[in-house]
Design a protein around this nucleic acid. Structure first.
Length: 339
DNA sequence: GTTATTTGACCTTC
DNA sequence: GAAGGTCAAATAAC
């Protein structure tokens, strides 16, 4: 398992984000408290130059972040059978391979959004993701040392929430659990209360299901679900939304030094259900102080999904990377996470 | 008494 | 028929 390599890049990615946020904090302090920065003795031109310099550093950090995210994406296996992350691609091919003309009844399960996360925890119940789950089954899986647990949202009957997840303990490292999520929560109230701490008020009125990504470009932003996303593709209007939401933390970010052994989360998301071939990379900020790198792919054919236009190399990210600093400065909430 | 978990049976898909 | 996924009755926990 190439966890070390993945961690290195993930750590670089996070470090770049944190560096950018430090620049943002400094810029905010300069703007909000000019008297504390000795600006009374500086002329306005110097102040503007310094602020511009900080802004350029922020943009550079986020640029690097996106580049690292792209590198992570490029390292995706071309086919499940070639995956070094043997646990990360567990979805049976049969679920991806329904032809478009399949009867609806045959595609019932396939229509649900699906993604996978790998976590290193001491117990199956050690992972909190902000939702409440009820176990409804357990099954021995062929070739697997440990049984697979089946969970569905507690609000399935009361609110009709169709979200489910499967928890599979790794054969190799018993402290690693693969969690495969299927479907999206429609019971959002439960999680909403917990996201309140990390989603700026401005975001709350804008929440909507994550859009279907398109092609070619990579963007960073916070999804309505509270996920900091590095999107390879995004509709422009949603891109604006995500960038606006990128303003969520910098001023009062609390950084918990990462412990790569205990809390590193590397997530590999597979969405085999979409008929599109789009790919998105998610840097996922989970509630409960976890952060994981999640790569979500969507497509009817996995190889096609990762080897198509999304095997990015030289996309003009800076040309498209906009950062509304005025909104960045608006948000003053606390947010802490660990790697 | 209510809610959550366990587990064998059944269903779906290939 | 095999394997994975879900249901639902029985059981446990609170």
């Amino acid at each position: 398992m190439e966890e070390v390599m993945g961690f290195d890049r993930s750590a670089h990615l996070i470090n770049e984000l944190l560096q950018g946020m430090e620049f943002a904090k400094e810029l905010r302090n300069r703007i909000m408290n000019p008297e504390n920065k000795g600006c009374l003795s500086d002329d306005n031109d110097d102040q503007v130059a310094l602020n511009n310099s900080l802004l350029e550093k922020m943009l550079s950090s986020f640029d690097k972040t996106i580049t690292i995210a792209k590198l992570l994406h490029i390292q995706l296996p071309l086919h499940p059978s070639e995956s070094p992350h043997s646990l990360t691609i567990s979805s049976p091919i049969s679920e991806n391979s329904h032809p478009d003309d399949s009867p609806p009844s045959k595609r019932r399960r396939v229509m649900m959004r699906k993604w996978t996360k790998i976590v290193k925890m001491s117990s199956e119940r050690g992972v909190e993701d902000g939702f409440s789950w009820r176990k409804y089954g357990q099954k021995d899986i062929l070739g697997a040392k440990f049984p697979r647990g089946y969970y569905r949202c507690t609000h399935r009957h009361t609110k009709g929430c169709a979200a489910t997840k499967q928890v599979q303990r790794s054969d190799g490292d018993e402290s690693i659990y693969q969690i495969m999520y299927r479907g999206e929560h429609t019971c959002f109230q439960g999680a909403q209360a917990q996201f309140d701490d990390i989603i700026p008020a401005q975001m709350k009125s804008e929440q909507q299901p994550p859009p279907s990504p398109k092609e070619q470009e990579v963007y960073v932003g916070l999804s309505p679900e509270g996920e900091l996303k590095v999107e390879s593709e995004q509709e422009p209007e949603n891109r604006a939304q995500y960038f606006r939401s990128l303003s969520f933390t910098p001023a009062n970010l609390q950084v918990v030094q990462p412990d790569p052994i205990e809390s590193y989360l590397m997530s590999y998301c597979s969405d085999f259900d979409s008929p599109t071939t789009s790919v998105s990379n998610y840097l996922q900020v989970l509630p409960y102080n976890h952060i994981g790198l999640t790569v979500e792919t969507s497509g009817t054919e996995f190889t096609e999904a990762v080897s198509g236009p999304n095997s990015v190399t030289n996309s003009p990210m800076m040309d498209d990377f906009e950062f509304p600093i005025e909104e960045l400065l608006d948000f003053g909430g606390n947010f802490s996470f660990e790697l």
